[in-house]
Design a protein around this nucleic acid. Sequence first.
DNA 1: TAATGTTATGTTATAATATTACATCTCCAG
DNA 2: CTGGAGATGTAATATTATAACATAACATTA
Lengths: 164, 164
Amino acid sequence: MTRTDPEALAFAQHDHGACAADALDYARGVCEQQGLRLTPVRERVLQLLLESHNALGAYDLLEKLKADGLGSQPPVAYRALEFLVAHGFAHKIERLNAFVACSRTHSGHSPAFMICRQCHQVAEAHATLASGKLGQAAKSIGFKIEKTVIEAEGLCPACQGSGA
Amino acid sequence: MTRTDPEALAFAQHDHGACAADALDYARGVCEQQGLRLTPVRERVLQLLLESHNALGAYDLLEKLKADGLGSQPPVAYRALEFLVAHGFAHKIERLNAFVACSRTHSGHSPAFMICRQCHQVAEAHATLASGKLGQAAKSIGFKIEKTVIEAEGLCPACQGSGA
DNA sequence: TAATGTTATGTTATAATATTACATCTCCAG
DNA sequence: CTGGAGATGTAATATTATAACATAACATTA
Ligand SMILES: [Zn+2]
Ligand SMILES: [Zn+2]
Ligand SMILES: [Zn+2]
Ligand SMILES: [Zn+2]
């Protein structure tokens, strides 16, 4: 339940076992508090997402669920993802049509992502779009922003070193 | 070839006939200058995108191409779109898996979009992500941004009025 | 002009992503 | 218990996208 909240964790050296365990504990705690049901399928999908900082497609997850004896048809994966995304435990990366576990503790945050095109890791940062250039443009013309997709693609520090 | 460059044109009242005609002329000029081939299929797809400020899916376009006797299989549409996107005459809206014509004159710009969830119009603005919060985070951790996806979803001014 | 290489198009097939619809099961409130 | 709500299982299908290969159009130059 008590998690640190660094920017771009995925590209920093860190104890990922603890990183994943903390995130899972945090999700369990939030669900308990809010009366949400972190069912076996949902929890397993979150665990799978937490295994790395890479984005996983619904069908990648589905294969692993199947291996666990937990449903093998697309809706099983999509429904679990829908729950996780709706409650902020995971995010969809639109650029990749794939999903990552959330690495933050705030609920109701608007995340931004850095996607490494080489190692495919995805780091999450917090974006305050409303304050940026687009936010200003939106305000000035009267567009009411409800949700944002902010994804940067490029090379992570490690991959820049290794002859990219 | 000489186009004005307002922010969020789609949500402002404007002479859309001229808007589309100018964009097409502009694309023709750029192609001539740069030795790019704006072939019939490519030009037709651009025209179709320019007919409105709504995003069109590849299969929407394909139907219209078929009606024109211009190829009816997915690769025809996807290849034309690939050309248009590569040269900055169109953009993909990742959130919608659909495409819009570019409404700007700069080449090499990094666009941002406002998508109205009600009327489905898409307005383009110019985003300088590198200068915003995410840009700072990227710089501080050494992530090298090559491309950005910035899309805001919400309600345009007109749709806020009409009981949304 | 004819030969050649290159780019664009046409076409078939298939992959990858996502949703609809409906039957069944589980859990809890009453 | 029993009814209702939410979650899961499953089949079928829709939507988006690409791979692979054949042909056509166009340019260069012999
Ligand atoms: Zn980690
Ligand atoms: Zn990387
Ligand atoms: Zn217009
Ligand atoms: Zn609108």
